[in-house]
């Protein structure tokens, strides 16, 4: 802190107020010329560093509702990122996306964001969960959400890179989302290939056996509808949309 005091015509009363302002400074930084008994005027110029602005929290609540009949959803990844896409129809899926879509593991996708939050657990059919995520000072983040339909080989649903810049505090925005296919594991529906309760089989496997691109999902066939080796039944069929999403900016 630098305090400079110019000696001008001065009223003593003003001088008496100065020690308080100077108390935080060492004496050698201060030049004070006193002429007592003379009426003086003092101009005090105090230069302090610009105050560090207090970070402003920007918080969102994301409520996900499972609209399917018998497809539990893996713990959802709610990711705030600056740019780019977590998934898009036609793109080659990232390993992080593959791990989520095949095995319900969301840690890789969560790490891609400048802020992110995971759901506490699986969201069962008919259930919903509200997940909070907070970032500071950034109101134009992109919001992405992903969650696996666990009784499938590599089906997932969610939202990619929603621009939040027009969402003011207190605003809500809703949508529904269809089901995507990660394109990393062939939709065999066979025993041992799906991590959900209908099978209890394998989750993530680094070998890619399908198209290699993200697309909309063609749906599960099931043994009831002509796929002989499927362990899925008519109960596990789904159609679009699979989830309802509500985003509320709370601050």
């Amino acid at each position: 802190m630098l305090i400079k005091i110019k000696n001008q015509k001065l009223k003593l009363a003003l001088m008496l107020a100065l020690p308080l302002a100077l108390s935080a400074c060492s004496d050698d930084e201060v030049e004070v010329i006193k002429e007592v008994e003379v009426i003086k005027e003092v101009e005090v110029i105090v230069e302090v560093p610009a105050p560090v602005p207090t970070p402003v929290d920007v918080s969102y609540e994301v409520t996900i509702t499972n609209l399917t009949n018998a497809q539990p959803l893996s713990p959802a990844a709610v990711v705030l990122h600056a740019d780019g896409n977590l998934f898009e129809v036609g793109m080659v899926p990232s390993v992080e996306l593959e791990k989520m879509a095949e095995g319900g593991m969301n840690t890789g996708l969560l790490a891609l964001g400048m802020a992110s939050a995971s759901g506490a657990g699986a969201i069962g059919p008919g259930a919903s969960e509200t997940i909070s995520v907070k970032v500071q000072d950034i109101t134009d983040a992109k919001l992405s959400i992903t969650t696996m339909l666990v009784n499938t080989n590599d089906a997932f649903t969610g939202l990619n890179a929603l621009d939040l810049s027009s969402l003011a505090a207190g605003d809500s925005w809703s949508t529904t989302a269809g089901v995507y296919d990660a394109g990393t594991e062939v939709n065999s529906e066979m025993a041992g290939t799906m991590p959900g309760p209908a099978d209890g089989g394998e989750g993530f496997n680094p070998t890619r056996t399908d198209t290699g691109f993200v697309s909309m999902h063609p749906g599960v066939v099931t043994s009831d509808d002509g796929l002989t080796n499927s362990v899925l039944t008519v109960q596990h069929k789904f159609d679009n949309p699979a989830i309802h999403i509500m985003v509320t900016r709370t601050e």
Partner: peptide, 24 residues
């Protein structure tokens, strides 16, 4: 509908590949 046989069955399309859900 499709089926899972390349050489017989009801259909000549593959049930795990040639189905779709809207939108397309």
């Amino acid at each position: 509908i499709g089926d899972d046989s390349a050489t017989d069955g009801k259909s000549d399309v593959t049930n795990t590949v040639h189905r779709w859900l809207n939108p397309v």
